[in-house]
Amino acid sequence: MSIAPQSMVTIYSDVMAVLLLVGLVVISREGDKRDPATGIFGSMCLGVVLIAFGNAVRAAMEGQSYAWVVPVALAAQTVAELALLFTVYQWMLYVDYKLYGSRDHLKRKYRFFFIPIGIMALMLMVNCATGFIFSMTDEAVLKPTFVYYILISLEFLYLIFSIVSMAVYLARGGKRRFFSITPVLVPVILGTVVDLTTNYSAGALGLAVGLVFMYFSLAHAWRFDDKKSGFFNKNFLSYLEEKGNDYLGVVAFKAAGRTDKLEEIIKGELPQDSVIIHYDEKRYLFFTETDREEEIRFLADLVQHAVNKHDEKFTDDEAIKLTYNYYVRSSEEDIRQLFFKAVN
């Protein structure tokens, strides 16, 4: 069985894509299993591996004249297309979660994203019997119909929708830290251009490079992770100084008892994209964009009230025993001076 020259290029690029992603998954630091983004990212890697696998098998069948070649090529192409739909869907979820950081927001959105994808997946399965989206010639060469191009366009609409989601989020004043969709979209678009303008497929390779870039851009945030609490560590102050910031106030929470319970309450009571630094074993600093004392007190009291309720139920060793102080920044002070006011 000899492989057609143009298939050779496709197989090469697909094997490279698989190698890149397998290496990424095997060597990379184990992500936080509680974070949905970790699971979604892993699913996207799996999706791209399946796309590359399907593509490579279909390419290897091209030009062969055995009886089993056409059904194998059709099945492989269907796997690749289904995996592409799955990956695009996961991408939407990933962008949503990275922007809003909320499981509730994700739960509200995932059905909405899934309906068109589910319909397209069903259509692809029906296609195996009817060939109304694509079929294979006797030599296992892909023969797409106009429906195939509609399908591709819809998948692209999903990518465009992710750009729109980000723009809407930023327009509403959302904060984007360590997350950009550009590192993924640029290689994906380049890979698609190669797919559309040549006889070779480099789409899976583009997706794989995109995911690697995404991983690296997110990994920048690791320097600021406080692994134990899930908040930022002290190094995040340098990041705020470097990037500029508009934080005018700070609340210093101090627990005399259980800190793990306090961390849960802080996460539940304060806004999702809050900047909270785990300063030392017992102290947490919550930075606010307002310098109005009543607003700062209101936010701090949300935590204090929840802690009081907790401490009513649990006493002694289980109690949190919270105290807090707040500080505002004067016009001459910078964020580092505000920080030291809070911790000294």
Binding site: P5, V9, T198, V209
Partner: peptide
Amino acid sequence: LSETSTGTIILDIT
């Protein structure tokens, strides 16, 4: 360009 050269150039650009 042949397929071999094209494949090589695609990988080199990547």
